[in-house]
Design a protein around this nucleic acid. Structure first.
Lengths: 168, 168
DNA sequence: TTTAACTTTCAATATATTTTGAAAGTTTAA
DNA sequence: TTAAACTTTCAAAATATATTGAAAGTTAAA
């Protein structure tokens, strides 16, 4: 397989994976493109390569910056902005985990805590089932939260070392 | 907070979380409803409670069965089918992880392996960056795969025991 | 069998999300 | 200043996804 074809395939696969996990396909594709680019790219180059509009490219790049996955670069004597992706997969995974925890896990934990206070008759099976389910999910969510917290602070080598030890 | 209101809130929160993770909102809501129901429910009851159509309810219930999250029940002397959700959060997490691995991680691993064979000039920085990125992502993906594999075989207590030990 | 209770299908419709592109906004060099 | 180079915005259009509901299909009791 040629490099050009390989790049194409990677961008497609990354885009598909992203969309299956609730991430805008274009955003995942732009990220993929920058991931496999040795140099930083301009908005223009990204638009052309992926055949997307200026508005779309601009918004997507802003979002990616918001996710902490890419950054702007400036070159002496040039007005244009260049975009460059962090290539470290461990950082990427951490960044994504961090953002999603903030945006999604935190609100859910808040709701679950509220729901732990629902009042009712312990003899009522409907109430008992509700209570039990909420408590169990709460426990799982808090464990996930704690695990992410530690993971976010961890260094790569330390983390993988632990995973390997954990799973022999 | 009253039980009825709590149920409502939980169904909404679960639906929102699901949709943010690429799971159909209605599917997550039906799952939530069954999770907090002491008894198995009929299609009719689910339709009424969530205000969804018969077709939607039917398709969603089939999907949930496909994900291994709920099951049909039959009652002596009745034609109607009842639906019941597994209430064990550990099983739910495992089931979801299992399905998503099969549907999403496996295809990505396949593409990454193909992309590892892309030919090019080692001196070409574009080629070198591509190779490096693919290799790194491959490594991460394989680690995730291995971790999931072990997790899927694991018993709850064993798993959480390890997590706790891992993170003190 | 027949029939009524129940389930499934799917084309049409509705809703939600993404994308476009032209206009407005901003910045810097001359 | 002015004007050209560049970035941002956002209403409208396009696309993708989810939902409806009536008709077709299935099943089991009579």
């Amino acid at each position: 397989m040629e490099l050009a074809e390989g790049k194409q395939k990677f961008i497609e696969a990354w885009g598909k994976l992203g969309s299956e996990w609730g991430i805008n396909r274009t955003m995942a594709q732009v990220h993929a493109l920058l991931l496999i680019s040795a140099d930083a790219l301009t908005t223009e180059e990204i638009m052309d390569t992926l055949s997307i509009s200026r508005g779309n490219a601009n918004m997507t790049l802003r979002d990616l910056i918001g996710w902490g996955l890419i950054e702007k670069q400036h070159r002496a004597g040039e007005r244009k902005e260049y975009f460059y992706a962090d290539k470290d997969t461990w950082n990427i995974a951490r960044q994504v985990a961090k953002e999603r925890r903030k945006r999604e896990l935190d609100p859910v934990l808040k709701v679950l805590d509220e729901l732990a206070n629902v009042k009712g008759e312990d003899k009522d099976p409907e109430f008992a089932t509700f209570k039990k389910s909420i408590a169990d999910i709460n426990k799982l969510a808090k464990n996930v939260d704690k695990t992410l917290d530690t993971m976010l602070k961890a260094e790569e080598s330390w983390f993988w070392g632990s995973i390997f030890k954990m799973f022999k």
